[in-house]
Design a protein around this nucleic acid. Structure first.
Length: 415
DNA sequence: TGTCCACTGGAAGGGAGGGCTT
DNA sequence: AAGCCCTCCCTTCCAGTGGACA
């Protein structure tokens, strides 16, 4: 009988001392290194809510992985702790909402409203009601007793870009109508420019307080990693220089702490899988490659069917040794691929949107070019390795039929 | 300088699918 | 059951555009 396949992993417990989730950005440690000044500034803004008053609204800006979300979640823990310690008689609700998930005005109101509705059957459904009705349900349940509510809207730019700022307007004016409760907003965005999209009434009310989180430098990232390492790892599994490498690689990408933590976690997992007692630079470099590959593969695998067909067209064209395509050429190929795979082709207008989405995801590169009298179009090429991408796309049962497909299309323009 | 090409990308609206209200 | 209202995905329509060419 062969050996149980799990045994070798059970033996090997040397790298992680505790739950490996400690090395995820979503884990909030007891202390956040290099964010003291931001934390005390926010505390200064929020402290009126401990006296039952409305705190000023706050906008937080900063790039990915600069600790905005971590600080926002950390403040929840701290403010609740403060209430408990001082034995304050106050019904404070600190509500965190990720607007990438609740990305419609309806969704945000529903999310907030349901926090105050205890009875499961009376909860606001995810669709079906008028916005006005949802607002009223939220209002009534919120104002049925004296409450202080702080709503954190993380990734607020995503919501505003997608659905406008109606919900902000509603939430800002709600204080004028509330008799018992008070609501303050904290908006978080990694896009400094997004506030230009806001209505002036919203902008002036929301912009009572503003704060920018600077990127971490390599030294600060190293401190963050060090802190997590001490909680997560057994002793002597990692050298200072290896931590430094993780920090340096992440610092190169605008000081992204999330990236640094991912690198370290994946490197640790690789070392563990290889039954090695220590994490080395080799593991960090391998982790870097793996993270990049995983991101892209996952994005491709979860693409909608028509986006996959478009990508397939681009890849097949490149594998024939051709360079980039124009929108028109790609559309012709796409229509053919759609028919061959039993899909009804979408219109060219819709395809231009899907092309832009693929470009934003970084899977392809598309730039607008003009050929004078030849017209204005997009120059489109892939940004992923053709062979492995093709294999990934062919995993889709609906696209499998395209395995032996050959492109036959005449070039209309030469790029 | 004006024309013209092959689009780009905004706006409006349709309809399917989901869910509540009367 | 009919009437609303929502989101999501899509189509239709069309004004606008950069730059080669006459």
């Amino acid at each position: 009988m062969s050996e149980n396949p799990f045994i070798s992993y059970l033996d090997n417990t040397s790298i992680f001392k505790k739950d490996r989730d400690i090395l995820r950005a979503s884990y909030i440690p007891d202390e956040l290194p290099h964010r003291d000044s931001q934390i005390s500034a926010i505390a200064q803004i929020l402290y009126p809510s401990l006296k039952g008053q409305r705190a000023s609204n706050l906008m937080i800006f900063g790039k990915t992985g600069t600790g905005k979300t971590a600080v926002a979640k950390y403040m929840k823990k701290e403010i609740e702790e403060a209430i408990e310690m001082a034995k304050l008689d106050i019904d404070l609700h600190y509500i965190y909402i990720n607007c990438e998930i609740s990305d419609t005005n309806y969704g945000v109101l529903q999310n907030i409203g349901n926090r105050f509705i205890k009875d499961f059957d009376s909860r606001i459904p995810h669709t079906g009601l008028s916005k006005e009705r949802v607002y009223n349900m939220l209002f009534e349940n919120l104002d049925d007793k004296k409450r202080v509510v702080i709503v954190v809207l993380d990734e607020l730019d995503k919501l505003v870009y997608k659905s406008g700022d109606d919900v902000l307007y509603d939430l800002l004016k709600i204080n004028d109508e509330l008799k018992n409760s008070k609501v303050s907003l904290i908006g978080i965005s990694n896009d400094l420019k997004f506030s230009e999209l806001l209505d002036t009434r919203v902008k002036s009310r929301f912009g009572e307080e503003k704060m920018v989180f600077p990127p971490y430098n390599a030294g600060q990232l190293k401190d963050i990693l060090k802190q997590r390492t001490e909680i997560a790892f057994a002793e002597d599994v990692i050298d200072d220089s290896v931590l430094g490498l993780c920090a340096a690689l992440a610092a190169r990408e605008h000081g992204d702490a999330r990236r640094a933590l991912d690198l370290l976690r994946v490197a640790a997992e690789l070392a563990e899988r290889g039954h090695e007692p220590r994490i080395t630079e080799k593991h960090v470099k391998a982790a870097k490659n793996q993270i990049e590959m995983d991101c892209v593969s996952e994005a491709i695998r979860t693409l909608p069917q028509h986006s996959k067909l478009i990508l397939m067209g681009i890849i097949m064209n490149e594998m024939r040794g051709r360079g980039s395509l124009t929108t028109g050429e790609l559309y012709t190929i796409y229509v053919d691929l759609s028919r061959k795979s039993g899909n009804t082709p979408l219109t060219q207008r819709r395809i231009t949107d899907l092309i832009s989405e693929l470009d934003m995801l970084g899977i392809i590169r598309a730039s607008v070019v003009s050929f004078g009298r030849g017209g204005r179009t997009k120059k489109i090429e892939s940004a992923v390795p053709p062979e492995s991408t093709r294999a990934l796309l062919l995993e889709d049962p609906q696209l499998e039929i395209l395995k032996d497909y050959r492109i036959k299309v005449q070039r209309t323009l030469s790029i």
